[in-house]
Amino acid sequence: MSGPGVGWYLIVAAALFGIGSLGVMLRRSPLIVLLSLEIMLNGANLALIAFARQVGDLDGQIFALAVMAVAAAEVAIGLGLIVAMARRDMALDVDQASALRG
C-alpha cells in the first residue's frame, strides 16, 4: 500500500475523538451529545481498523464490528430516552436533567 502510514490514520482517529469529546462536553442538547458520542466511537473504530491493517490481524476489525453493534444499540436507547423526555414535556437540556445529584 503506498498510501499514508498507519500513523496518519491514527492522527485522524485522535482528532475525531477529540472533536467528539468537545461536543459531549460543550453542548446542551442531548441529541447533539448523542451525535458527538457517535463521532467518538467512530474515531475509536478507525484506530482499531488501522491497527488491524498494520499488524495484519483481523481481530481489530472484529472488535470494530462489535463496537458498531453496541453503538447502534446505545443510540437506540438514547433516542428512546430523548423521546420519553419529550413526551413528558421535559426540557431537552442535559444540565437540567440532574436528578442524580448527590
Binding site: L26, R27, R28, S29, L31, I32, L79, I82, V83, A86, L92, D95
Partner: peptide, 16 residues
C-alpha cells in the same frame, strides 16, 4: 426522532 421533536430539538450552544 428529529422529525418527531420538531422545534423542540433546537439546540443552541451551551452556557455553563
Amino acid at each position: 426522532v428529529i422529525a418527531y421533536l420538531g422545534g423542540r430539538a433546537d439546540a443552541p450552544w451551551a452556557g455553563g
